[in-house]
Each structure stands twice: as C-alpha cells, then as structure tokens.
Amino acid sequence: MNEIPLQAYLCLAALLFCIGVWGLINSRNAVRVLMSIELMLNAVNLNLMAFSSYLDGAEVRGQVFTVFVITVAAAEAAVGLAILLSLYRNRNTVDMEQFNLLRW
C-alpha cells in the first residue's frame, strides 16, 4: 500500500534533528534556540509516527507517544517563553552571549 520506504522518513527525521542541533548550538537569539528545540522534537515525532505506521499499524502506540510529546512541547514552550520574558525584564536583551552573569 505504502510505496515510500520507511527509511525515507527516518532519513528526513535525522536531517531535521541535525538542523535543530546546529541551530541549538549556534543561535544567539534565545527565542531561536527555543525554536531549534521544537525542530528537534518534531524530528522525534516524525520518527515515532513513521515507526507507528510501518511497524505498529494495529496498536498505534507511536501516535499516542507523539501526542504526549506534543503536549510536553507545548508546556515547555510556554514555560520557556515565560522565563525568557522575566529574564528580558531584568536584562533587556535576548542575546545568549550576554547571559553571562554566571560563569559557564
């Protein structure tokens, strides 16, 4: 029924994950770092959905897992942006390189 191989989805997810990792390391804007994390989570979701469709078509546990990941991602984004906002009020910047009150 499905002519696209499973590996195509897995490779796509791997590419997306690596783009997310690169963005995580290199972004200087804290909002962009959060967006990169969302990319990584989406890559994971693609993996789960592909496995769910190709290997687990009857029980679809991967879809359940994905719903949980989406839920947590939304909670994490809300908390992350609240923290960012409170930090912005204190420091008036979102540049990651200037968050150096604490030594790394």
């Binding site: 499973l6 590996q7 469709s53 190709y54 290997l55 687990d56 078509g57 009857a58």
Partner: peptide
Amino acid sequence: LLRVALTMPWPTPGPASI
C-alpha cells in the same frame, strides 16, 4: 543517524494499518 536508519533491518512490514 543515517547509517543506523539505513543499515538496521527494520521488521517491515508490520501489521496492517487500522
């Protein structure tokens, strides 16, 4: 990641999709 995705013999096809 690509090597793992491509070389692993995934047990396809699984049960038919519902």
